Computed example of a mutant assay.
Amino acid sequence: MSKLLFAAFNDGVSLSMAGNHEAAIAAFDKVLAVDAKHVPALTGKGASLATLGRFDEALRCFERAIEVDPNEAEAHREAALCQLELGEPEAAAQLLQRATQLNPTPGYRESTAVQIYNLGNALLTRGSRRPDKARYRQARHVFELALELSPAYAECARALSDVWEHLGDTAQRDHYAQLATRLRPVPA
């Protein structure tokens, strides 16, 4: 990689870490103008776009990164998070399955589960109004994915119990409430 390309990429990373995501995107675009297959720039740009809530655009970056390097676990995981934000849990589940195949370490699975759990909580707390049934159904899919990744995640089981309470299914509520009492908490 040329020094200029390396410098532009490092600028993008620094700007992103400083919270200046629009400028980071511009820096990553400089790298991609020279090397359209630069996976770190594609994922960096995708991460900045996702932080800005531009999930469709972010997903395209992560999908391009996967196309260039199908063995990039982070691109799969980040694409899955975008799919969840876009209300596509089935597509997210496939991407997460591939991500955890590529990186099967327990720590990776647990950290991904925590990220997904946090996304589920964010779905329920976004906006000024109370969540409706549609948001509870979406959160249910998100929490189920997190629990699938980390089956011992007690907080996630409690969240599923709460979601099922709001969806009106007391049998599922009770099932997840009992499960939560038997599980250990996952460190944040």
Rank of each mutant, 00 (worst) to 15 (best):
K3N: 14
L4N: 15
A8D: 15
N20S: 12
N20H: 05
D29G: 06
V31W: 01
L32Y: 13
V34G: 13
D35Y: 00
D35H: 00
A36M: 02
K37I: 01
P40T: 07
P40A: 04
A41E: 07
A41I: 03
K45T: 08
G46R: 13
L52A: 01
G53D: 03
G53A: 04
R54A: 10
F55E: 01
A58C: 07
L59F: 00
R60Q: 07
C61P: 03
C61Y: 00
F62G: 05
E63Y: 02
E63Q: 11
A65I: 14
I66N: 02
D69L: 10
P70T: 02
A73P: 04
A73S: 15
E74S: 06
A75P: 10
A75S: 05
A75E: 13
R77N: 12
R77I: 00
E78H: 12
A80L: 09
L81I: 04
Q83A: 00
E85Y: 08
L86K: 04
E90C: 00
A92P: 01
L95A: 15
L95D: 14
L96S: 06
T100M: 11
Y108L: 03
T112W: 12
T112D: 02
A113R: 02
V114P: 06
I116L: 05
I116E: 03
Y117P: 11
N121K: 09
N121A: 06
A122L: 10
A122M: 10
L124H: 03
T125S: 15
R126P: 01
R130G: 14
P131L: 10
D132E: 10
A134Q: 15
A134W: 13
Q138F: 07
R140G: 09
F143W: 12
E144I: 02
E148K: 14
P151L: 04
Y153C: 10
Y153D: 04
Y153L: 11
E155S: 09
E155K: 14
E155G: 05
R158T: 11
L160K: 13
D162K: 14
D162G: 09
G168R: 03
D169Y: 07
T170D: 08
A171P: 01
Q172W: 10
Q172K: 15
R173Y: 05
D174Y: 02
D174E: 11
Y176V: 01
Y176E: 03
A177T: 07
A177G: 08
Q178R: 14
A180D: 11
A180G: 03
R182H: 13
L183D: 12
V186I: 14
V186Y: 13
